[in-house]
Design a protein around this nucleic acid. Structure first.
Lengths: 350, 350
DNA sequence: ATGATTTGATAATAGGTATTATCATTTGCC
DNA sequence: GGCAAATGATAATACCTATTATCAAATCAT
């Protein structure tokens, strides 16, 4: 068995071409100036030597020397590749992969990140974060301390989803839920609805606040009157009663799964969607169906969000930290309202 | 705005604890021997300093010094995160993620790898392969040159799926399709079948040969007589004729999708599955259904395959290349036959 | 008391790349 | 011919960690 083959280095190339390691580096990086000059002949000789060999720059050495490596970290606060997560992460990861292939960069998934005192943390004692040029953060809920520290350390990163709750200015790419919610409420009003239910889980995430803001605004301005129904861990008793009491003719839910649950509970009470009552999610609906009908809601173009996030991240990486303020680092993409077949004209008046 | 914070290094820790960088390194790695001794007092002082700080070892420097990093590369010959690929890659990636989290390692997806002269190559001029401790290779078809070079360079890697076509000994974890195929044929025989069709695509992949081997063996031994039907790009004209001519009472297909196509063509000819003819895939069937019935085939436990692959890879990484022969580097896992509801007792005799 | 050994710690170096500073040689000019 | 400037190339260094070699001081043995 032959001895372990050592990797070919610039020094090796230099030996072959009869120059110094410095010269090889200069040729590789097309460096040429008043201080360093390399005539075409020498340049060609070195290039030949490289071409003949299997030389590949050592990424570790490059990184140590402070250069970029076209490696972007990906951090998720929960497992991203499980079947259950696919509904949410799938399109994002798909978008990331496509964009990464496009621009020629690799993706480092921080699948380690052990659970420390309850929650996953990006900064554990063995984090390989610094190996990446930058990092994409995915997840509904993310740790405020992580975000703050990333900002403080001037580490290039982009969060997917709006994140302006913290004091630090967090770069993000998200969807404009405010506009979407407003638009869908408008639509319901145009269809003759005056009283609605909003079935939500918790109200702590930024997007939850976005929706709530519009819902409160609508109720305040007398556009569409909302009654809130909290569904703690999917508990929907009280739903039917609340609907009857409010005389609601349309139900908004926080997400598509909740909409399915709601439809199920309504069906149990003999209330048919959408003939008896309209139903719509204030979230991505993809191909969710209720009673065989396409659920109304949003189309959030997660593929584009992911691509935009990677693009922004690359800009951050290639821009010195002092000039980051010149970039638009907080970007909201416009989604689309998906009318579906479950949001229809007001039928039963009360 | 504060100046860019430099990362805290061992040198910095050393300065705080009043020792040398060497000592810090020794403490971190619990080094202690005849040559280097550190009294408990000093050791404690250094540990304190580290604890107080945010010190994290620089992975690039570690790598450059020839150490491992708990980073495993993942290479796929096609996009792995697209919805279309999910059927095949999904369970594998899920298994990888779980196993990686378990053992605390990160996954570096080589999503760059541009297309060079027709096919994707692991070894392009900017490959970041060496940044990983080892690499998992995924994909139905993989490049023989890549495999050979990996073996030659003694780079730790594991292929998912049997790979013994090449001269070099490729470490792999796969499913024993030979046993599964044999078992399913036995089952068909026990159900009274004597003549079968095998509908296949190409016959070049290793698993395709596995299946074919058993099919030929069965035909030769007079167990179950097979007639081959090639479905070039899904073209299934000739299917019905071949079935009639051979008097086949059961159809085997190369994969589940092909089984669905076959069922469709049969239905078009007024032949019902499984009442008129039995149908089974020689591949993973998961929750594929034909005429509302669970398709017969295999259960290949891809989650376990992925976990086993990562486990083997870790063994390779932590074992010097000279001793690799002592490990079982070619592993076949036993899958399970999934009887389903489309492989039934022979009905129509011919 | 003095040579041998143990103890505690560090200087020096490797690993591969990029950059800065430096140097020797050649060319240009009058 | 002699000095300034341009040219071609390299030595030295930084990046950070792990390891090997080295060294001074303290302890031991006789």
């Amino acid at each position: 068995m032959s001895p372990k083959t050592r990797n070919v280095t610039q020094r090796e190339i230099a030996r072959i071409a009869g120059v110094s390691q410095t010269t090889v580096s200069m040729v590789l990086n097309d460096r040429d100036g008043s201080n360093v000059r390399i005539p075409a002949a020498t340049r060609e000789r070195v290039k030949q030597a490289i071409e003949q060999s299997t030389y590949v720059a050592d990424p570790a050495a490059r990184r140590l020397a402070g250069l970029d490596n076209q490696i972007m970290g990906v951090f998720t606060y929960e497992p991203a590749l499980s079947p259950e997560s696919m509904d949410f992460y799938g399109p994002l990861l798909n978008g990331l992969e496509r964009a990464a292939e496009q621009v020629g960069c690799d993706l480092l998934f921080f699948t380690s990140s052990p659970v420390e005192n309850g929650t996953r943390s990006l900064f554990h004692r063995k984090t390989r974060l610094r190996l990446a040029d930058g990092c994409i953060l995915l997840g509904q809920q993310m740790d405020g301390d992580d975000l703050k520290r990333l900002v403080d350390e001037r580490f290039p990163f982009v969060a997917v989803g709006r994140r302006d709750e913290t004091t630090a200015k967090v770069p993000y790419v998200g969807i404009d839920y405010v506009s979407l919610t407003a638009e869908l409420i408008e639509r319901a009003i145009a269809l003759g609805h005056t009283s609605a239910l909003y079935v939500h889980r918790n109200l702590h995430s930024p997007t939850a606040r976005d929706r709530m803001q519009q819902i409160e605004a609508s109720t305040a301005s007398g556009g569409l009157r909302f009654t809130l129904v909290a569904a703690e861990d999917g508990d929907l008793t009280g739903l039917v009663g609340a609907a009857a009491e409010a005389g609601a003719t349309v139900i908004f839910t926080e997400d598509a799964f909740l909409a399915e649950d709601v439809a199920h509970v309504l069906a149990g009470a003999g209330i048919e969607v959408p003939t008896a009552i309209s139903l719509t999610a204030l979230a991505e609906v993809r191909d969710h169906r209720v009673n065989g009908r396409a659920l109304a809601g949003f189309q959030t173009l997660r593929l584009q969000v992911a691509a935009e996030a990677l693009s922004l991240l690359q800009q951050l990486v290639t821009t010195p930290a002092e000039e980051w303020d010149d970039l638009e680092t907080q970007r909201l993409l416009q989604g689309m309202v998906e009318l579906g077949e479950t949001l229809v004209e007001r039928t039963s008046a009360k």
